[in-house]
């Protein structure tokens, strides 16, 4: 049952990304292009997505998930070095071509060989991340 929910959630997420235009890299880069032809669509997407999710978080208080023992605990509020460096690196890649992980997978069927290449590079990057994390922890201690 959890597996079915995962499949359906992924499918709905993918449809939302397609409908909102977030699989179109021009719209994403347009949002980031503050000094060019700025495209505000992404703000509407993010705003629209936050509403049902904020309701869900509210509803989750003092309740349990239908198919799991408990909701995920809030992460520690600390703003670590890895969060800052990682988000900055991610933003650079995101700006460069206009793809982030969700839309990269959602556009696999129509993204051609270029889209597939991005996903392969992204997976290699994900495999390299623990090494960079260890390296940063050793070089820059204490944080």
């Amino acid at each position: 049952m959890r597996q079915l929910v995962s499949l359906i959630s992924g499918a709905i997420f993918g449809l939302g990304l397609l409908i909102s235009g977030m699989t179109n890299t021009e719209k994403v880069q347009g949002w980031l292009d503050v000094f060019g032809a700025w495209d505000p669509t992404l703000a509407f997407v993010m705003g629209g997505a936050i509403v049902p999710m904020a309701i869900a978080w509210q509803y989750s208080k003092k309740r349990s998930p239908v198919l799991a023992p408990s909701f995920p605990a809030p992460p520690k509020p600390e703003i670590g070095r890895n969060l800052i460096i990682g988000s900055t690196l991610f933003g650079m890649g995101w700006g460069l071509v206009g793809l982030c992980p969700g839309p990269a997978i959602a556009s696999l069927s129509f993204g051609g060989v270029h889209g597939l290449s991005f996903v392969v590079a992204m997976i290699i990057g994900m495999l390299l991340a623990p090494k960079l994390r260890t390296h940063l922890d050793q070089r820059l201690r204490p944080s």
Partner: peptide
Amino acid sequence: FGLFGGIIIGTAAALLLLFNGR
């Protein structure tokens, strides 16, 4: 379309949270 698609994205996230706790 952005707003509508966004609400759909948030619904997918809410579904995964409320059912699977993820």
